[in-house]
């Protein structure tokens, strides 16, 4: 445990002594803040216009018009940015030959992987929590439902840890950071969209829907808390870390 924490601390130091963490966090806030602003403004224009139409104004709903699409869009931004966060975790160790230190120190591969993973999860948490000031701002003005907002946040977090775990796996495969980032971005995007196949074929329909990131996130962003979605993300994260472990174990024979 102490070793894991030592590695986490080291990774955080490296994250914040290079521009990586700052750029990723601030871009995330900039883009999500921008989206939120546009959505809220659009919503207020809509509600102004619908003032004369009681039927339409009854249908207007803050959660449905702002929060649900906001979380869905924020998820896409995570998909774009998180591979940048994980790309150096193992690739850079190999390129700089520091893996020779890491793997000869008295620590286990599990501790190394967890240490690195936790550091990226902490940054993800920081990114998500930092959106709270503007996301909760409408609560001072009106009364949206809070549950969908909370499940939306939970969804972002779970989705994020799944992305990060795959990103680490991708980083363990290569010593080229760009390759690691592009590979994890590409595969995650594919998994996000894989449910499209169900439009054209019924073959493996249930399975395709199950492995698609989008379907699981859709529920959470709408306020539906289903254990199967949570289990999906957690098991995806576990598989990513396990594959990383397998890569490190095999590599010991080949270097």
């Amino acid at each position: 445990m102490r070793n894991t924490w030592a590695i986490t601390k080291k990774e955080l130091k490296v994250y914040f002594s290079t521009p990586t963490a700052y750029v990723v966090i601030s871009l995330f806030l900039l883009i999500t803040g921008f989206m939120f602003y546009v959505m809220v403004s659009n919503y207020s224009i809509l509600s102004l216009r619908s003032g004369g139409n009681p039927y339409f104004s009854m249908k207007l709903n803050l959660n449905q018009y702002i929060y649900s699409p906001f979380f869905a869009n924020a998820a896409i931004i995570l998909l774009l940015l998180l591979p940048i966060l994980t790309m150096r975790l193992f690739a850079e160790e190999r390129r700089q030959n520091t893996d020779e230190l890491l793997f000869t120190l008295p620590t286990t591969n599990t501790q190394i992987i967890l240490g690195k993973y936790i550091s990226s999860v902490l940054i993800l948490t920081l990114m998500i929590v930092a959106t709270a000031p503007f996301v909760f701002y409408p609560f001072f003005l009106t009364k949206p439902e809070i549950v969908p907002v909370l499940t939306g946040y939970l969804g972002l977090f779970l989705l994020g840890i799944a992305f990060l775990s795959f990103g680490i796996f991708s980083s363990s495969l290569t010593e080229n950071q760009i390759v690691a980032a592009v590979f994890s971005f590409g595969i995650l995007l594919l998994l996000w969209l894989i449910y499209w196949l169900t439009y054209v074929t019924s073959f493996l329909k249930g399975f395709l829907k199950y492995i698609s990131f989008f379907n699981h996130f859709d529920n959470l962003s709408k306020g539906l808390l289903d254990t199967s979605d949570i289990v999906f993300y957690l098991s995806f994260a576990f598989v990513g870390l396990f594959l990383t472990y397998a890569v490190l174990e095999v590599r010991r024979w080949w270097r």
Partner: peptide
């Protein structure tokens, strides 16, 4: 052979 250093630290 190559000292394993983290240049950022």
């Amino acid at each position: 052979e190559i000292p394993p250093l983290y240049p950022e630290l």
